[in-house]
Design a protein around this nucleic acid. Structure first.
Lengths: 204, 204
DNA sequence: TTGTTCGCTGACTAATTAGTTAGTTAGTCT
DNA sequence: AGACTAACTAACTAATTAGTCAGCGAACAA
């Protein structure tokens, strides 16, 4: 392994530590010491790689959102009820179901909030939202859009899906006993599926 | 004016300053000095009244949410299309339309995020969400629920309304040129009004 | 082998922070 | 009037912070 590889590896370890720390303590709440400890380096190294705290954290945000996996959606839908399958997977991808998605979701919210104060964050957030929207609209359009049943504005459906998963996602973070993951999935399903000409109930 | 009145007035001035500061800088970002300056008192007085930073900020959150005005909804709906009028007002009340609502909305989001880290905040957030839900459901139920057209679960409609306004609210905070207030209102309207047996378009 | 580069650290600084304390002063009670 | 209470402050401290810098040592080049 070359020193360049090693350097890149360290850089990445720092960024990932920063992501975890931001989700855990919040943007303003993270201390450089915490990130350094988690990445198992000195605080001086953070400054060596990223100059300032601000720059490190923005890099971390960017990295996090560029690396949230949508790989599993490359999998082919089953022959039976492919539309139902696709919609269910997209909804699931946008809800904080797993610990990892939950972490990303919190990071997301941190960025949203920071966007109200910092213009760099705002531009990043707007761009990110657009990317997410394109991804959702793309999956729906490619997978379901061609269906004989649908005659709707895919963009608007994607928009509504994102808003709903965002709203329910926030509530899921609260771990309010009155709202389960199943409730949230079902509610998003009910609000979206008719628009796509899907009349089936939520699978499982 | 008695000293007790004066004390209460000062206390309130501090709390309101804290609310503004939290919305502006974020929970972790607020410095006691900022709050003190804004309330035109010494930092020592903050500690005299609230002991610790933490306690002050929790009090501020509580105060803010107990004092968000729903007074304007006491006004009587017009004779013509009262259902339409009521729904439009409720939706408007939940979207960050004005500077004040925007500030409260940001504070709200701060609490949501903090709720993922701090159990006191979490309990407050859950309680608050419940209160908002009851308010929305109450207004809908009292104003529209008795209508001959509706036969839906008001609780679920209120739930969906809150989720949608939350989701769109966040996007409105971004001031994304692709999403106007009118778009958000119309989208929420379209997603809610059919459930309530309202077939009219969004007023104005 | 030897000199050089550079990823990396320990020990530092200057600035800022929440919180304390010893008073001052204005309003209240008898 | 005179004693008392308590809202309020200036000046402090102890701790923590982001950021700096001189230098180490392993990898690389010659």
């Amino acid at each position: 392994m070359t020193t360049d590889d090693r350097k890149e590896q360290t850089r990445r370890r720092i960024i990932m530590a920063a992501c975890e720390a931001i989700a855990e303590y919040g943007f303003e709440g993270v201390r450089m010491r915490i990130v350094a400890e988690r990445a198992e380096v000195s605080t001086a190294l953070l400054h060596y790689h990223f100059d300032t705290r601000e720059k490190l954290f923005l890099e971390a945000m960017k990295f996090s959102f560029e690396n949230t996996g949508a790989e599993e959606y490359e999998a082919k839908p089953p022959r039976k009820n492919p539309n139902t399958w696709i919609l269910a997977r997209v909804i699931d991808a946008c809800l904080p179901r797993t610990a990892e998605l939950r972490r990303d979701f919190v990071l997301w919210q941190e960025l949203w909030l920071r966007a109200t104060r910092d213009s760099d964050s705002r531009l990043l957030a707007i761009d990110l939202y657009q990317q997410m929207h394109e991804w959702v609209a793309g999956v729906i359009d490619k997978g379901i859009g061609a269906s004989e049943f649908t005659a709707c504005d895919v963009g608007k459906v994607a928009d509504r899906l994102l808003v709903l998963t965002d709203g329910y996602g926030i509530r899921l973070l609260l771990e309010d006993p009155r709202l389960s993951l199943a409730d949230a999935r079902a509610a998003v399903w009910a609000a979206i599926s008719p628009d796509l000409g899907i009349t089936r109930k939520f699978p499982e």
